[in-house]
Design a protein around this nucleic acid. Sequence first.
DNA 1: TCTGGGGTCCTAGGACCC
DNA 2: TCTGGGGTCCTAGGACCC
Length: 412
Amino acid sequence: MRSYIIHIDGDAFFASVETAKRPWLKGKPVVVGGDRGIASALSYEAKAKGVTRGMPVFQIRKICPDVIVLPSDYDLYALYSKRIMHIVRRYARIVEAYSIDECFADLTEPLDTSLSREDIVRKIAKDVEEELSLTVSIGLADTKVLAKVASKRNKPRGVTILEEGDREEFLKTTKIGSVWMIGSKTAAKLSGLGIFNAWDFSVQPLHWVRAHGNRPMEEIWRELRGESVYKVKEEAKEDQQSISRTQTFRPNSNDPRKLLSELSKNLENACIKARALDILPTRVSFFLKTESFAYRGTEFELEHPTNLPHQIMSRIEALFWTLFDKRILFRTTGVRLSGMMPSAQIQEDLFGSGVIRTQEKSIFECIDAINWKYGRHTISLLSSLSVYKHEENNQFLYDMKRLQLVYLGQVS
DNA sequence: TCTGGGGTCCTAGGACCC
DNA sequence: TCTGGGGTCCTAGGACCC
């Protein structure tokens, strides 16, 4: 049976959400990313003036003096993202949130059979625009790979319906490197074999594909030929495989206390996420990146899975010294939690150390609630403290004053 | 392009075992 | 013991995505 898959892609998503929230910005060049000093997203108006992603703000102002620069507000974008998915669910049984600004939906068996699939696609676009003041581009095709390429074709605000008869022309005008999951390495390899567009690739015989590629390449090949291999799937929260938090700081440092508090902060943030998802890691890895971009990392197993940072931090501290070298300057640290288990699966023994962990869990439930209400890092681990002290825009001390926190001693 | 941050999955090759 | 073959498990690293 033929399958019908749509890919929905938000147009200039972050900038558009900002504009939806502040309608007076409509039609103006908007750049998001002021908090980091470089553009992480931009409106079409800004793009038209020559602004590119990654461009420093001072340079943007030079070429585009009337630019509006805004800090990124991830929580807001996540909210709009959910609203879009919510609209899509009116029409499709299965919706896969692929990233914050993209989703797939399976329209093989639509909820409303009185509408054609093309009508549904246009209705989704219309609903989003009317209800959220955002525009999306949508591709409808037989497979995820084709739908994804199709949604890119007529951006912004474009609907692209790919029928079997259009496929050849469509794939001939699709560069091989712009096919989903064919990156620069594979594209270079394929060009070396005389393959320059998606059509060239899709018409190779199976034995050729097997001779020159691995399994993923064969799957992409099938998808381009209209054979659906990748299914649209709802992602459950607890399916998340890993959580990582990394951060580059300036200037580079060889101060072990600085590096340890950076690690501690990253660990805390990763644990906050793990608690929000209610999952527990069984493995932890962390790394230091040197100024010359070399990684030094290590990994360890947790005897008791936990998402409470202080239980993990002591292990990191102990292993830290095997990676650290005071003759080397470091630029980035990162922490990754993996081997996830749903917390419901872990049964604490209710005697001995299990009791302590259960008590600590409730302490962190309070901390999460306070941080949710008053902002990130209103309460944080002492081991992370020096990071916040050193941050220029000192949000931490600001919150300290505002909340008048009293130091009650260390909870060990 | 002097290089941010958060993910997933695959594979080659070593360690270990029979 | 220097010698074959086969299997599993694990890890590091690569490739890809947004």
